[in-house]
Design a protein around this nucleic acid. Structure first.
Lengths: 160, 160
DNA sequence: GCCATTTACTTGATATATGAATTAATGTAG
DNA sequence: CTACATTAATTCATATATCAAGTAAATGGC
């Protein structure tokens, strides 16, 4: 549903309207909010020297269990698309939070796993991350949060 | 409203639940959606060699009119917080899309303006950007878009 | 079996992001 | 008027993002 540019304004209205369409305003609001929420929710990672992306890779690897995951499958599960997945895992490997080994049957794939240390870091971060997410979402009641999630799901559904 | 960790699961449920709380899931959904929407809506800028941030600076400068704006005030109005505002304006100046001059009464401030070329570029981008935003939001009906915007506003209100 | 194609990464070049430290101008207290 | 604090902007070092190109292994057609 393409919304129309908003109605004309008096000629002496100096500053032009911020956004010509509702869709533009919605996109801006979404990006603005996501930026704030990201900062609020990822701030607690700095204490352990992790970036948001590094943290998400660790979570994905934990979810994959002892079998680990091929490098590019991590990329597919990331919250934000990242072409730099190799270097991201490089960093985690340097920090001893993840390990890699080349597959035996298909020697193209590199299987990534979370280390014991990585699991400990995630465990230490669990409570702070949960608290931070709660704080980030504190503007909405639970029912509103659900409604928001449903709307976001629909939005994503149309884009994938 | 701090929501509780979700209800326990059977012991044989191998993969741990993706998110322990509703707030965490909402944060993830928001970031995921924002990333998709950003890509969908900013894709059209590449044709003119602009990044999303550069484009937003130009919009802010256009809104400021002929008086221009001090550098750091641009940063405050940006959609996503950016400490690298100086370099962002550097880039726009190199491209002849913005100009700068040191203030006369307070010689600490640098006033930034959009150039005629910058205005032309924004004008050329208007239609594609509106179309892209429409496409990015096509998953929601207008009434749902309004509801989403209202929820996002509340979320931001609690974080600022 | 051989060759083109696809797949799974990896690397390189370039750009951008980020926080801390720096410079310069202004404001303020004594 | 001097000393100290504040403000506006810039610079630096380091980390990360991004796209394109490259490598190596597997796959499919004939």
């Amino acid at each position: 549903m393409p919304d129309r540019p908003s109605s004309p304004r008096p000629a002496d209205f100096r500053q032009r309207a911020a956004y010509a369409t509702k869709a533009e305003a919605a996109v801006a609001g979404l990006l603005r909010t996501a930026d704030l929420v990201r900062r609020a929710s990822e701030g607690c990672l700095g204490a352990h020297g992790l970036s948001g992306q590094q943290y998400h890779v660790l979570r994905i690897l934990r979810g994959a269990g002892t079998e680990g995951l091929p490098t590019l499958e991590i990329a597919e599960r990331m919250i934000e698309r990242t072409p730099g997945i190799t270097r991201l895992v490089d960093t985690l490997e340097r920090k001893k939070l993840a390990s890699r080994e080349r597959g035996t049957e298909d020697r193209r794939v590199v299987r990534c796993r979370i280390t014991r240390t990585g699991l400990l870091v995630l465990a230490a971060l669990e409570a702070p991350v949960v608290r931070a997410a709660g704080r980030a979402m504190r503007g909405l009641r639970p029912s509103e949060t659900l409604r928001l999630m449903a709307l976001l799901d629909r939005l994503r559904g149309a884009l994938e």
